[in-house]
Amino acid sequence: MTSSLLAACGQGGPDTSKQADAAALVPVETAVVASRAIDASYSGTATLEADREADVVAKTNGVLLKLFVEEGDTVRQGQVVARLDDASPRLSLAKAEATLRKLEADYRRADEMFGKKLLSLEEHDKIKFDLDNQRAVHDLARLELSYTQVVAPIDGVIGKRHVKEGNLIQLNQPLFHIVDFDPLLGVLNVPERELNTLKSEQAVSMVVDALPGKRFPGVIERVSPVVDAASGTFRVTCRFDAQAQTLKPGMFGRIDVIYDRKQDAVAIPRSALIEEDGETAVYVVVQAAPPAPAADAKDAKAPKPEAAAPKPDAPKTAAEAPAASSLQAQRRVIHMGFADGEYVEVRDGLKLGDQVITVGRNAVRDGTLIQIIDTAPAPAAAGVPVAEKTP
């Protein structure tokens, strides 16, 4: 019975061993370390806001008789956007004009009498002061009448209308909200380590969630020289053109500030990086060392006659075919340089042509045997002839 078990084990041994070795290989995807241009940049997020916006408020009381603009309309500074009831201010102006004409006539007569020494200086000055005061009252009445024509204080677009025709409007009540779309600003809160890196007039670019696939150019408008002690950041204000009103205030954008470029950087994808124990590392594909041959003690003492050299004409069997080389993962600590959206520069730890693991790196450790999954067809195994296609 023991011999039967040994025979059974002898029959299944080689195939079982090969299947176990194949199962032990961890499938991974790799990328080749190559030379490419990499931009040194800072990326941050910001909500777009208008550089100029204002509320249109009523400067006098009255009933709103007419609206001349609506939400979404473009207006110019000084354009009439609404009209209030002007009956009372118009009557006040007419009354002030009548009083002004009377005082002007009184002053002319008083001036003639003063020249003939028929009027004292005190009475002459009193009439002149009354005339000056009435002129001010007249100008104020004219100003009050002009306030019934509500005008836009800035150029822009009507963002919101707060009132309706027929409403009784009170002094300083908001009627409209005007937004100037050009330019729009995005404010970044940047860590203090970048204080000497970001400067005014540097070019920036932005993508917004509402408009995927589009990138909008801009420029740094100003950089605050003060660092907020609570957050350790400083304010960087970026300016963007409205792009024919494609960009809107309130949109959420991701802003990239490119401040340097290296043309021939040794680069790898970000997906290859591993952050462990405060170090940045990658797994590199290397050739595994061949296992040491295990010699059987009995076979060493008494060599079998079958171990003699095979005849030159004898074909190689499957067991005698050279074994395929094994690959393994090797952990390497690297030092990074510039970094952009997809790639990072490696200043130390890798060389051009190395292969780094990008997919499956979390499943391997230093020395793990791996199998590279490649979409390209694998080359034919050594020692196996390739069938030629017939024409």
Rank of each mutant, 00 (worst) to 15 (best):
S3Y: 12
S3G: 11
C9G: 10
D15W: 09
K18Q: 11
V33N: 01
D39C: 00
A40Q: 14
Y42F: 07
E49G: 11
E49R: 14
D51F: 11
R52M: 11
E53F: 08
A54I: 11
A54E: 15
D55Y: 15
A58M: 08
K59Y: 14
V63P: 12
V63S: 14
V63K: 15
L65Q: 14
L65H: 10
E71Q: 15
E71T: 15
E71V: 14
G72W: 03
Q79G: 04
V80I: 14
V80N: 07
V81S: 06
D85Y: 05
D86A: 15
L91R: 06
S92E: 14
K95F: 04
E97T: 03
T99F: 03
L100W: 07
R101I: 02
K102R: 10
A105Q: 10
A110Q: 00
D111I: 04
G115D: 13
K116L: 07
L118V: 06
L121K: 15
D125H: 04
I127D: 02
I127C: 01
A141M: 10
T148P: 07
A152T: 07
I154E: 02
H162E: 05
V163K: 13
V163Y: 11
G166K: 08
L168H: 10
L168G: 02
N172R: 15
Q173W: 10
D180M: 01
F181Y: 15
D182W: 06
L188A: 01
E194Y: 15
T197L: 13
A203R: 07
A203I: 07
A203M: 03
V207M: 09
L211Y: 07
G213K: 00
G213E: 08
F216L: 01
F216C: 04
G218V: 02
E221V: 02
V227I: 11
D228E: 11
A229K: 12
S231D: 05
R235E: 13
V236W: 06
T237R: 09
C238P: 11
R239Q: 13
F240M: 07
D241P: 13
A242I: 01
A242R: 01
Q245L: 12
G250L: 05
G250M: 07
M251Y: 15
D256K: 12
I258E: 11
D260P: 11
D260W: 07
R261I: 00
K262W: 02
Q263A: 07
Q263W: 09
A265M: 03
V266E: 00
A267C: 12
P269S: 04
I274G: 01
I274T: 12
D277T: 03
A289T: 04
A289C: 10
D299L: 09
A300F: 08
P305A: 04
E306H: 02
A308I: 03
A309N: 12
D313H: 06
P315F: 00
E320A: 02
A321D: 00
P322S: 10
P322Y: 01
A324T: 00
V333L: 10
I334Q: 00
G337L: 05
G337V: 05
D340W: 02
E342T: 14
Y343C: 01
V344M: 10
D348F: 00
L350E: 00
L352R: 00
I357L: 03
D366E: 13
G367W: 06
G367D: 09
Q371S: 15
Q371A: 12
A376T: 15
A378Q: 11
P379H: 09
A382R: 08
G383A: 04
P385A: 04
T390D: 06
T390R: 13
